[in-house]
Write a protein that binds this DNA or RNA. Sequence first.
DNA 1: TAGCTGACGCCCT
DNA 2: CAGGGCGCCAGCT
Length: 112
Amino acid sequence: MTKTDDHFFNKVYDVARMVPYGRVTTYGAIAKFIGSPQAARMVGWAMNKSFSQKEFVPAHRVVNRNGMLTGKHHFGTSDAMEQLLKNEGIIVIDDAIINFKKHFWDPANLID
DNA sequence: TAGCTGACGCCCT
DNA sequence: CAGGGCGCCAGCT
């Protein structure tokens, strides 16, 4: 546990990487899990910066509380995020995840 | 150096 | 039912 591991962003990346394949979580869930429930918007900002991270961060598995791909515009192409999710078996229609509740994975609920 | 802004979410009119 | 404001923390101009 180095000093950098205490950084907010680093915690966000850590949690994001915990999201299992084929599952998704929300900005708010991550924020809450790392102890800053009201910093959900920072989680989004962290995801943005995650592209420049050395280790891979599955940013496409993080959506807003409604299961909508609000951050898709930050991926290379407009449908990159959607394709990544579909590739994991998640149906996405009109920027919204179908059966979001079913695919949702709460970091606080490690027991699935 | 100080201030603005952002992939959100919740509460209050 | 809908719209607006605030908090949160760090990077960028």
